[in-house]
């Protein structure tokens, strides 16, 4: 399968007036396959929005190249197959929802005969169909965010780039967005989005990239990101309530200890000698959240050293 998004050695140095220049991205290689959902995560200031803006053509890369469906980013042609939700956009506040959506449909090149139905369709997807006459300034923050999603969908683009699509949404609307994304994937649409909602990313993404201080620390599917955990979990009943140098968690009637894989034999021997009843032993599966903390933390230490 070909790539919807591709970047090679992407680098961005922001020139600043009062402070030294800031390296926001360094040697970023991205490959997003057509039809995939790609989740882009990383701490605040990692460079997610910078990457996305380079893809859209709002920010010029300092070096390297970025392609959308093989077209160099930054050209009108590269944006022909694109829907974009900006991070913190304010829309023309004196326009009505339906009017502004129509403007977007025209700019996106939607055929005149289809414009009305497309607008209607996009509004229905985000549940704003009864707000078509409302001025944008009179929408709530979450509604504005939903308008943003609607304008991104207006031309039924094969690629959606969403910068924190669930920010500012209530839990129900967040679920909505998640379902919208999954439904669009069902239609073969490629979705690239950044998010701080790690549980959502974990649930819906085919590929996940972890960005930190402008570098891609890890990139792969969920299994690849989580499996390199070198820890096991030993679950037992009875026996010692405390172990020297280890934390014993009480989970109901069970006691649980986490420890490096190579030390598990010794611990099991010790527990058996102490009269404990072994209930289970398994590779400790991390959540994406844990993996995220560990990966970004270790990288931080590496850089500080």
């Amino acid at each position: 399968m070909s790539n919807a998004i591709e970047t090679r050695h992407l680098r961005k140095l922001y020139r600043r007036r009062r402070e030294p220049d800031l390296l926001a991205l360094e040697d970023l290689d991205l490959h997003v396959r057509e039809g995939d959902i790609f989740g882009f995560i990383g701490p605040n200031g990692a460079g997610k929005s910078t990457t996305i803006k380079i893809l859209i053509g709002l920010v010029r890369p300092t070096a390297g190249e970025a392609l959308l469906f093989g077209e160099p980013c930054g050209t009108p042609a590269s944006r022909r197959h694109l829907g974009y939700l900006p991070e913190t956009a304010v829309y023309h506040e004196f326009m009505a929802v339906g009017e502004l959506l129509d403007v977007h449909a025209r700019l996106a090149g939607v055929a005149p005969a289809q414009r009305k139905t497309r607008c209607q369709e996009a509004l229905e997807i985000v549940h704003l169909e009864d707000r078509a006459q409302t001025l944008l300034r009179e929408l709530s923050k979450g509604m504005r965010q939903r308008f943003g999603i609607a304008q991104a969908l207006i031309a039924r683009p094969p690629l959606l780039v969403l910068d924190e699509p669930t920010s500012g949404l209530d839990p129900l609307a967040q679920l909505d967005v998640k379902n919208i994304i999954l439904r669009l994937k069902g239609q073969g649409i490629t979705i690239f989005f950044s998010s701080h909602q790690l549980t959502d990313v974990e649930l819906i993404c085919d590929q996940i990239g972890i960005l930190h201080r402008g570098r891609m620390l890890r990139c792969g599917n969920l299994r690849e990101l989580l499996e390199d955990s070198a820890e096991v979990e030993v679950r037992f009943r009875g026996g010692p309530a405390q172990l020297p140098g280890r934390e014993v968690l009480e989970q109901g009637a069970d006691r649980v200890v986490r420890l490096p894989r190579e030390e598990s034999d010794a611990l099991v021997d010790h527990l058996r000698e102490a009269g404990a009843h072994l209930v289970g032993l398994q590779v400790a599966r991390r959540s994406l959240e844990q993996a995220f903390f560990e990966i970004t933390r270790t990288s931080g230490e590496v850089e500080e050293r």
Partner: peptide
């Protein structure tokens, strides 16, 4: 300042 141009410039226009 209001970033109203970001969504517009994401359209296939120069």
């Amino acid at each position: 300042e209001h970033r109203t141009l970001h969504p517009l410039l994401a359209r296939p226009i120069s």
